[in-house]
Computed example of a mutant assay.
Amino acid sequence: MPVPLVLASQSPARLSTLRSAGVEPRVIVSHVDEDAVLASLPDGTGPADAVLALARAKAEEVVAKHAPNALVLGCDSMLEFGGEILGKPGNAGTAIVRWRQMRGSTGVLHTGHWLVDARNGRAAKQTGATSSTTVHFADLTDEEISAYVATGEPLNVAGAFTVDGLGGPYVEAIDGDYHGVVGVSLPLLRHLLSEFGVAFHDLRA
């Protein structure tokens, strides 16, 4: 029997990534107030620590409210660009402005991972880390930006882009972990699992 994993995320890309690696997690979406979590962080908290705090909040909420005896993974992603942290643009106007700034430039996509092991009702053990990958954006024309934003895909993803979907043609290269950009780093998850004595293949059916 595989070790069951709960994914505290509504991201289709994260679910698809885990499934492609042979893992079929149970999805329980957290309802963390992300703005409140970020506001509670000390001044000067960097993006790598900020996404880790959000991932932790998501995993801990799911354990506390929905899965008290489970192995739970929380994740969160943000793009660091030009000294700013960019989450989901939320609307077409913002997405267009961001892409006009990002085209021909580079940013760093940070994905925080937080793993809570509360199996068998024992005291929960926790661990986490952030995957950070440099992304090189293509020098898009205004027409390309408008066409991409019109698909709706960039509106609800961190940094207004995907590398595994419609945004793939607009990412020239990445330096780091591809899966971390998609939303969940499989190599990093393997390392986190090992801290609890769980091998990655133990998750597979």
Rank of each mutant, 00 (worst) to 15 (best):
R119K: 03
H179M: 09
D164P: 06
T127D: 14
G74Y: 06
E195H: 14
F196E: 03
S131N: 13
V63K: 08
I28H: 03
L73E: 09
P68G: 11
C75Y: 06
L188D: 12
P47V: 12
G152S: 12
V135R: 08
V198W: 08
G165Y: 00
D175A: 15
P25Q: 06
V27P: 05
G183R: 10
F81T: 03
R19M: 14
L71H: 07
A13H: 11
V116K: 05
E195Q: 15
P47R: 06
E34I: 02
L189N: 09
Y148D: 04
V135W: 05
C75P: 07
T134W: 01
A92F: 02
D76Y: 01
V171T: 06
R56W: 00
E153P: 00
L109A: 11
P68S: 13
L7P: 01
V182E: 06
S185F: 10
L41C: 02
S185G: 10
G180I: 09
V72M: 12
I174N: 04
G121W: 05
G44I: 08
A138V: 10
M102P: 05
P25Y: 09
A129P: 01
G83I: 07
A124W: 06
A39G: 00
G107I: 01
I85N: 13
H136W: 10
A124L: 05
I96E: 15
S185C: 11
P187F: 14
K58C: 02
Q101Y: 00
H66T: 10
G197Y: 01
D43H: 06
S77T: 15
L166E: 09
A138P: 03
V181D: 11
V29I: 14
P187R: 13
H201P: 00
A70L: 11
G176C: 08
L79W: 01
G159W: 09
G159E: 10
L15V: 14
R14P: 09
T130Y: 07
E153T: 00
W114S: 08
Q101W: 04
G176I: 09
D49K: 13
P187T: 13
K88C: 08
S132L: 04
A129M: 06
D117T: 05
V27N: 02
L188I: 10
P42Q: 09
A64L: 13
T45F: 05
H179P: 00
A95W: 03
V63Y: 14
V97I: 13
M78N: 04
E172R: 15
G74V: 05
H201R: 12
H110A: 03
G180M: 08
G128S: 02
R119I: 07
S194F: 04
I145H: 11
M1K: 14
D139T: 03
V23M: 02
T17A: 15
T141Y: 01
L166I: 09
A64W: 03
I174F: 08
L71S: 07
K58S: 04
S11R: 01
D142S: 12
G107S: 04
E24I: 13
S131R: 01
G176T: 07
A59E: 04
V29A: 15
F200R: 10
D139R: 11
H179L: 14
